[in-house]
Amino acid sequence: MTTESTGLSRPTPDYRPGSPDDFDRLYRTSYPRILGTLIGVLGDRAAAEDCAQETFVHAFRSWKSWKPDAPAEAWLHRIALNLAISYRRWARLREVGELVRRLGQPEPGSDPADLVSRDDLVKALRRLPAPQAAAIVLRHYHGYSNREIAVALGTPERTVASRIAAAKRRLQRELGVDPAGASAVPGPQLGTGGPSDVVIDEGHEATG
């Protein structure tokens, strides 16, 4: 896990808005982190790569107008998260259509090589609302502080803290992790649960 401070709060490297070479440099630096965040949010590597590439397409179009007063990576994360939300919305609609078309037919098997999609934690993250999943990945994978995440997502710091807390409660419940610290027991066993046992409805994305 990358625990070192990233680029969100340090002074922004010398990127010149509109410079193609600097954008290439930004891509080399930031693409892995953007991809990591999107995998956490989307739970699907192919989708995350698609969204990550689109993130940089959108960013490149606006590169001339990017203001260096905000960290470039924060700006990229905001674009990425908006795209991820759009993707999830589209995927839900497509899923409904597929389900109707497949009525009575067996479900297609998942790609055995796709370890990401089969991972229990990734599956659980995918069921979280996109902003919560993003906050978890930014905090506990990239090592950003709540303030840095707030800058990246354009939300108040307090909102970030509450999102992370809510996300952790859900993850603990879904993964059957004892909040006291025992190892996770994935499967139908539930943890102690939190005060807000919200039923996660896959058809709707809760805000927060």
């Binding site: 896990m1 990358t2 625990t3 954008f23 290439d24 891509y27 080399r28 693409y31 892995p32 982190r33 991809l35 990591g36 995998i39 956490g40 590597r45 370890l115 990401v116 991972d119 934690l121 990734v122 978890i136 990945v137 506990h140 994978y141 952790k168 993850l171 992790v177 610290g181 190892s183 996770a184």
Partner: peptide
């Protein structure tokens, strides 16, 4: 535990170099 799991899953993927 969360950080370890995320690292185990994501690091092999995101550690691959990006080629502009």
């Amino acid at each position: 535990w969360l950080e370890d799991e995320l690292g185990r899953t994501l690091t092999p993927i995101v550690s691959q170099p990006a080629r502009p």
